[in-house]
Structures are given as C-alpha cells and as structure tokens.
Amino acid sequence: MLDDTDRRILRYYQGAPESAVADLAERAGVTPSTLTRRLERLRDQGVLRGVRGVIHWPSLGYEVEVSLRVTLDKTQARAFDDFLEAAREVPEVLEIQTFLGQVDVRLSVIARDMGHYQQLYRESLLTLPHIADIEALMHVARVKGQEALPL
C-alpha cells in the first residue's frame, strides 16, 4: 500500500527521473536517505518498473504511424500465440495490445514513409499468421501522449 509520501515521491520522480537524489528529495519533502530507501522499496515491489530513454522516432526518419486492428482466425488453436510471437519479431511494431471483442489485437507500427509502410505491410504484416481481417488506421495527430499518472 502506498502512503502520501510514496505518492509524492512518485509524482516528482515521474516528472524528472534524471534529477539528482538531493534535488528530488527536497521537492518531495524527505531526506535523501529516505528517498533512496523508498525508491528501492518501490522498485522491489514492482511499482517502479525502470527508467527508460524515450526517443522521438520522427527525429530518426520515421514519419508514418499506423494502428492496425487485427481479427484472428480463432478456429486455429494457437492463433493468438503464433500471431503474437511473429508480431514481436517485426522491429517496426512498437506496441502490441490484445482485446476481448471483435478486434483481437492492435499493433502500433511506424515506417519511414508511405513506400516503406507499403513494403512493410505486404512483406511483414500481411504474412503474420492466422489473420482473418485487418484494418489500418493512419495516425494523423497525437492529441495527448502523456504517460504520467495523476498522483
């Protein structure tokens, strides 16, 4: 169970995880040793799952983002397992989500341009196993892209 101090620490930590321990402790209103101890406990409990570098992929030449909604042939016993295993191997697939309902899987895919996307779609995505139906939604704008939790 998280207390108010844990939540305060997490609020400041998620906003600037690269901050020095002393600076973060001061903002959270705790001592550096308390901050260090609590962050370690939060990591051990799986609340904090790591710090990561977030790369602005358009800066690396990826200009196209597509969301693919996939319905699988569920008459095949291993449809989900086979599809997910193969989709994980496509480097341009950034995210895979599974659902209950008409759509089984959503893939978030990036490409350098439309020509690259067309090649990727034909050679890698359409060849994924057990696809019964696929719908492509072309990304136009990211209106909100926040990962921070309201703590």
Rank of each mutant, 00 (worst) to 15 (best):
L2G: 05
D3K: 09
D4E: 15
T5Y: 05
R7D: 03
R7L: 11
Y12H: 11
Q14V: 00
G15Q: 09
S19T: 09
A20N: 13
A20S: 12
A28M: 06
V30L: 08
P32K: 10
T34W: 01
T36Q: 15
R37C: 06
L39E: 03
E40C: 04
G46L: 07
V47G: 06
L48C: 00
L48W: 01
G50C: 11
V51K: 10
G53E: 12
Y62T: 08
Y62V: 03
V64M: 08
E65P: 01
V66S: 04
R69H: 15
V70P: 00
T71R: 11
K74R: 15
T75Q: 14
T75V: 14
F80E: 02
F80M: 14
F83E: 04
L84H: 06
E85M: 07
A86M: 04
V90K: 01
E95Q: 11
Q97D: 12
T98D: 10
G101L: 04
Q102I: 05
V103Q: 00
D104E: 07
R106S: 15
A111H: 03
A111I: 07
D113L: 03
H116L: 07
Q118N: 14
Q119H: 14
E123D: 15
E123W: 10
T127A: 08
L128C: 07
H130N: 08
H130L: 05
E135T: 15
E135D: 11
A136L: 11
M138P: 00
M138E: 09
A141M: 12
A141S: 13
V143Q: 08
K144V: 12
Q146C: 09
L149Y: 02
